[in-house]
């Protein structure tokens, strides 16, 4: 009969109305500025720059390679290379950005800069309270505003950060091992150099074969034979990051 459905509906909304006063768990909304929903790992808003250690400028991972700047679809990244280099986490001297600006009013949050970065240097943030009273100045974030520690990255993206940290620790270990092997090989070579010249010729030939031109990976420099035999995987072993081939 016409009207029964209407009455059922009225009863339902009436139950909601009364129930919302007696059962707080019925209320689905969060009182936002005071309370926040727990963050979601896949959430992403704007990019930020990761640094290691305490000092944000010394530990900055960015090497001002400008890949992200060229790949950015809306062209919201602006990078100027510094003339002074600084050592990276493996102790190798790398470029660093003098200016690194992101115009977040232009940024569309696509995350392509994160995909292309070979240094795990730029990551997507989860902050969303970005409103400002200045339409232009406040929306243009500079390097100092963009840097955030690796610990923060570990907080917002725990799984991914753990993988990256492990891979980087692996790199450091490998580099140390290689340095040690290098030193050993050098000492050994020095010892046998006089007696066995043919061995030295073979080592030079092997190193010219393993070297891959153009890559910036620290372990891709010409290595002696002993070093290449001690590390079974010469290619970068980071699981999440695609190898950067220009």
């Amino acid at each position: 009969m016409l009207g029964l459905g209407i009455i059922k509906g009225l009863v339902e909304t009436g139950r909601n109305f009364v129930g919302s006063y007696f059962k707080p768990e019925r209320l689905v909304t969060i009182q936002y500025p005071e309370k926040h929903l727990p963050p979601v790992e896949a959430a992403r808003t704007i990019p930020f720059l990761v640094y290691d250690g305490k000092d944000s400028m010394k530990g900055l991972r960015c090497t001002a390679c400008t890949i992200c700047e060229t790949e950015c679809p809306p062209k919201c990244i602006y990078i100027v290379k510094d003339t002074v280099k600084k050592p990276d986490y493996l102790g190798k001297m790398q470029n660093q950005p003098k200016v690194f600006d992101i115009d977040i009013s232009v940024c569309m949050g696509c995350g392509i800069c994160v995909e292309v970065c070979p240094f795990e240097s730029i990551k997507m943030d989860q902050v969303f309270e970005l409103s400002g009273s200045d339409r232009f100045g406040a929306m243009l974030l500079h390097k100092a505003q963009l840097v955030k520690s690796n610990d923060y990255f570990g907080e917002i993206c725990h799984e991914q950060a753990t993988q990256i940290n492990a891979a980087r620790a692996d790199d450091v270990r490998k580099a140390e091992a290689k340095a040690k092997a290098d030193a050993d090989a050098k000492a050994k070579a020095a010892a046998v150099a006089v007696s066995n010249a043919a061995a030295g010729v073979a080592a030079v030939a092997a190193s010219s074969m393993t070297a891959t031109p153009g890559t910036t990976q620290p372990d891709s420099k010409p290595a002696p034979k002993a070093a290449s035999t001690s590390t079974p995987l010469p290619a970068p072993s980071k699981p999440t990051v695609p190898s950067a081939t220009p």
Binding site: F17, Y21, V28
Partner: peptide, 10 residues
């Protein structure tokens, strides 16, 4: 207010 409560909002 009533609309909100009927939809389980505040």
């Amino acid at each position: 207010k009533i609309l909100g409560r009927a939809q389980n909002r505040l």
